[in-house]
């Protein structure tokens, strides 16, 4: 059963990579601008600057209130990643690197996965099933219902961090083509 999606995926990849190569052969890039440059539009820059803290706080709200209202780790992580993407495309690569770089994104994605699997394994060590938070009450010293709530909160924080980092690094890779400017320079110097 698993063969069908794999075939479809490889077919799509082959097709789109061929198309991309054809178009790139026909029309070389007209300008040196990239997605990760500072915009010269002052409206977009100012509005993004004012909006970004509120977007980030809203993302954290969606993550933290996942067990009361719609949303949760994945949705909050998407919004948090979108805020960083907005900063990247409005303020440019140089400034965005101070807040979130690709190395940091990789670290954060691993860290989020560590939180998620760590809580799951903790339940396993305490003698119940994987991600069965009821047993966490022994550590947290609360009743099992509250322990379940706190455990879900922790797992959602982990999922949110991982989703944010992975979304950011996917956008980063697509927009820079996987090649950073200083990497190019360093490589040329090395050769």
């Amino acid at each position: 059963m698993i063969r069908l999606p794999v075939i479809c995926y490889s077919f799509l990849v082959a097709r789109y990579s061929n198309e991309y190569q054809e178009t790139s052969n026909e029309q070389p890039a007209t300008s040196n601008e990239t997605m990760t440059q500072v915009t010269d539009d002052i409206i977009i820059r100012t509005v993004a600057r004012i909006l970004i803290p509120f977007i980030q706080l809203y993302a954290l709200y969606v993550i933290m209130h996942g067990h009361h209202s719609p949303g949760g780790g994945f949705q909050g992580g998407v919004i948090l990643g979108a805020s960083f993407i907005l900063y990247l495309i409005t303020h440019g690569l140089e400034e965005a690197k101070i807040r979130m770089s690709e190395v940091k994104a990789g670290l954060f994605s691993s860290f989020g996965l560590l939180i998620y699997s760590g809580i799951g394994l903790l339940c396993l060590i305490l003698g119940s099933n994987y991600l069965d938070y009821g047993k966490l009450s022994a550590i947290l010293r609360v009743i099992p219902a509250q322990a379940r709530s706190l455990g879900i909160l922790g797992v959602e924080i982990g999922v949110g961090i991982a989703v944010m980092a992975v979304m950011f690094s996917i956008f980063f890779d697509i927009s820079t083509g996987g090649i950073l400017p200083e990497d190019e320079e360093g490589g040329q110097e090395g050769r």
């Binding site: 997605m35 993004a48 209202s69 719609p70 949303g71 949705q75 998407v78 979108a82 993407i85 907005l86």
Partner: peptide
């Protein structure tokens, strides 16, 4: 909550 998420992603998608 849902509509705010929708508005935010719409805004960022249009800008991108």
């Amino acid at each position: 909550d849902i509509s705010m998420v929708y508005a935010l992603l719409n805004f960022i998608g249009t800008i991108t």
